[in-house]
Design a protein around this nucleic acid. Structure first.
Lengths: 343, 343
DNA sequence: GAAATATATGAAAACATTTGCAAAACTATT
DNA sequence: AATAGTTTTGCAAATGTTTTCATATATTTC
């Protein structure tokens, strides 16, 4: 259906113009080094032949691959959607393309996809959070590839990071409930084993409760993955107990949405009968009914800042020092929290 | 911090083992062609040196790049999250890595990102839907790269496709409302100019209405991007009219969520006072309160099927025939639709 | 134990580009 | 018109790998 025969590479273009391949290369990569007239002829020939330069050859020569690796746990939920989009926009603007890989919250898989990205000689790599296997950290160090942790801030992170302080996010959520007067509080979180974001939030929250003498009994602690359906069923169990809590602090907005759904299913009025707070402020949280009170993590800003920082690191490979950027979280008081009912 | 000096390539590995580079290459790519003992020594050397093979060199040699381009309008919303994840999983399983690019619903940008992906010599490329610029189609044809349209099914698509019949989705939604007895119906859709999915749904719906003599007046036609907030404000306007419709057909679930939110804000009971139906069945639609009635587009199945089909097409470059795969849509009757109130 | 076959390895060309160096072609200065 | 300086171009080496072809070694068969 098409003439496969005519592969057009840089030398066929150069022949067409009557000039050396080197000049064509320069016309593309350093246009100011070639005579305007020649450049014009070359541009015309490129357009005419439909020549598309081969980045692989370029990469092989030792130049940049113009790709950046982005490794996220999943892209299936709202959680990372915004940060992935913002990051992708930021690096695309500088001519990079994103190599995307997901690991489904499995750190062993994460190591393997990192290897795969390195095979493609990505110019830099961004990971979510700071919980990674020792192998992963070793590989990054050993290959000397610019790396960046997105989403978490920690003053002692081993690699550069751009993110919010999740401990503070947990604390802010907890203090909001306390300030409203709640003392009988349940918390619903995802597994925290290989997830520093969730762990930090959990610790921030429980520390804040402990500081005012509130103790969360184990029967009010729910465990749910990032799924509305699962969270709903967990919260249903929790709220059906004879003495349910008056407020629920949820590890993120998805879990909180499940909690709201569970409460409404049981005929409870949110927030009159039960207060619910999330963390994250995902797209949609502001517009659900009732609007979700939550602690905002500025995903868009984190993503684009991360993209820019990583590109900076790539541009100046000499400065190998770790830079940590911390973005503020913000309490978004909306309609799912209120003072507890008098009883 | 690390010895940058020692770049480890295939020849340094081969030297360490005392064997030729060719043998190392074979040990990696065709292990059965090398003696077990040699292979073992090579594996050890690779592990010891931390050698990571260079796909760029491999690509340059004319082999596969082992990358697949995926171009979506956006990854920011729930809309494409599931399909992107499923697609990525499917192709990763076969050793490919995804080069992700977004164009923000702009077909000119789409053309440019396609070019960028071709520079990286992707082995195949997947696009969303069938509305693409003439330049885009020409480029695909001219470069002879296996291409696949995801998300739309059309019997006459110029390239292979895996998707649902969006016309039918629109029709199914419309007929559900008609069957319930609604005749005063509004519809809220995104711009349909460069979006064949939305256009087909719109046409399917209006055709179904016309077939039973229902005419949707222009003042009951809302236009909203895929944003809950925007949809809410559009629906608020629409529902505040003196004679509001008894049902709303929404272009997708995000818009429907905005509609539900608007209705509740106005103190209307969904579905008693107004029925609302979406299209898509995104994650979360089943669990919102009330649960959204919608027409299910099987995003996960579409994504993984698309991944597999594209890989098949890459594996057998000879068969250049177009194959079109059509997945069924399904009405998900949930809690946001009911017969109209007697009046 | 020789011949025939199968297995394992190496040498070298090929892939498409970039860039340091040198030569050539201009321009400016006297 | 000769010299010096600047701009533009070409040559050729280099990049890291794979694969074809040939050769060497091991295994089987008689």
């Amino acid at each position: 259906m098409k003439k496969q025969g005519e592969k057009i590479d840089i030398v066929s273009v150069s022949r067409l113009v009557g000039v050396s391949p080197a000049t064509v290369s320069r016309a593309i990569n350093h246009p100011d080094l070639v005579h305007p007239a020649t450049r014009k002829k070359i541009d015309a020939a490129i357009r005419k032949t439909g020549y598309i330069r081969n980045r692989a050859a370029q990469t092989m020569h030792g130049r940049r691959s113009a790709t950046i690796g982005l490794i996220v746990p999943t892209v299936d939920h709202a959680i990372f959607a915004e940060v992935v989009q913002a990051f992708s926009d930021a690096v695309s603007e500088e001519g990079f393309t994103v190599l995307l890989a997901t690991h489904g919250y499995d750190l062993k898989t994460e190591y393997n996809v990192l290897r795969k990205l390195l095979e493609h000689r990505v110019d830099g790599v961004a990971l979510i959070g700071l919980d990674h296997s020792a192998d992963t950290y070793r590989l990054i160090e050993q290959q000397g590839v610019p790396a960046l942790a997105i989403w978490s801030y920690a003053p002692d992170s081993p690699i550069s990071s751009v993110g919010a302080d999740n401990t503070e996010a947990g604390r802010v959520a907890a203090e909001h409930l306390v300030l409203l007067g709640h003392r009988r509080i349940g918390i619903v979180f995802p597994p925290t084993a290989e997830n520093d974001r969730a762990r930090a939030r959990f610790e921030g929250a429980t520390a804040a409760f402990a500081a005012v003498g509130i103790d969360v009994p184990v029967e009010w602690m729910g465990r749910s993955l990032y799924s509305i359906a699962q969270s709903k069923s967990v919260c249903l169990d929790l709220l059906r107990r004879s003495e349910p809590p008056s407020a629920l602090l949820c590890g993120n907005d998805v879990i909180a949405q499940g909690a709201v759904s569970a409460a409404m299913t049981l005929g409870l009025n949110v927030p009159r009968d039960i207060s619910i707070i999330g963390i994250g402020d995902f797209a949609g949280s502001a517009d659900m009914m009732p609007a979700l009170t939550t602690v905002r993590i500025p995903a868009g800003r984190i993503g684009s800042l991360a993209g820019r920082h990583l590109i900076d690191a790539i541009a100046s490979p000499d400065s190998l020092n770790v830079v940590r950027t911390r973005l503020d979280v913000e309490l978004m008081m909306r309609a799912t929290t209120a003072p507890p009912k008098q009883r």
